[in-house]
Computed example of a mutant assay.
Amino acid sequence: MGRVTSRRRVLRVVDGVSSARPDTLAVEEPLEIRVNGQSLTVTMRTPGADFDLAAGFLVGEGVVRHSAQIAAIRYCAGATETGENTYNLLDVALAEGVAEPDASVRRNFYTTSSCGLCGKASLDAVRATAFWSVRDDALRLDPAALSRLPDRLRAAQRVFDRTGGLHAAGLFTADGALLCLREDVGRHNAVDKVVGWALRQDRLPLTATVLMVSGRASFELVQKAVMAGIPVLAAVSAPSSLAVDLAEEQGMTLVGFLRGASMNVYTGAHRLGLGAAPELVARG
């Protein structure tokens, strides 16, 4: 299995005084995902929970929704010149009768850990492929309980403590119990790893749960949460305008800038026992 961290020598400068010291970095390596032997995509990720990553990616793209739809996941021969397996190539064998990914999903190129792998170009596409509706999820949350999640997420980030360079995604129950946490250099990969864990544990759809992420809330993260049946997405930073549009369209609760006792509730305020925000009046 690939390493999660790597040690490097750095020159530390404090108040004009420099000194050499070792530093721990988060590893970033390419992972090629194949389906039934055919290349699907290559993503830059932090090694670890690769099977979850592949499974979660397939959920987000509408390829699978039950663990029985995956027959097997295995590492392929991706050997170096010395014959050592790089563990950067894996193949997902779909169960008999499961349709292979549409040609539009296949991405035979490298993507950075920051840009993600968004295969849906519009809200209509997400609406057409979502397996479960989150609109009618009866989950109700105490805002005070929600405000405790960032600290609980941070406390569970073991690799971040060593590197300071990883995003995290955590799946919580309504009362704040942590079900699953995954870290990665890419926030979208961290979410895929959580969703893939849930698929492989036969937990989909993830009703009555909260997905907490360490960065911003992009359209893609909302999409992945919707595809997994998660009714609440909370982030410590800002959402994008398209993320808010999609969350509102799907009936999801979207919270941003969740820091301490403060938060911005962009959609689905009813799940927190709050009234909807008054509409802004445009000024001419």
Rank of each mutant, 00 (worst) to 15 (best):
V13L: 11
A128G: 08
V232L: 09
R7H: 05
Q157L: 14
R34K: 12
F57T: 10
W197H: 15
A121L: 12
F51D: 05
R162T: 03
L123D: 14
V64G: 01
E29Q: 15
L90R: 02
V10G: 07
F219Q: 06
L181W: 08
A276L: 10
E279S: 09
A68I: 03
G251T: 04
G78C: 14
N264S: 14
L274W: 05
G251Y: 03
F51L: 07
Y266W: 10
L123F: 04
E32H: 08
A128Y: 08
V126M: 03
A99K: 13
E81Q: 11
L211A: 08
R12L: 14
R259N: 14
D124M: 02
G284D: 13
E100W: 02
R162F: 05
L123N: 13
S104P: 00
I73V: 13
L211C: 09
L199I: 03
N85A: 11
A217Y: 06
V27P: 00
C115T: 14
T86R: 15
S241H: 08
F160Q: 13
L199Y: 03
G273W: 08
H188S: 13
D15V: 01
R200K: 07
L199D: 01
L153Y: 12
Y110M: 12
I73G: 01
F51N: 04
F257Y: 12
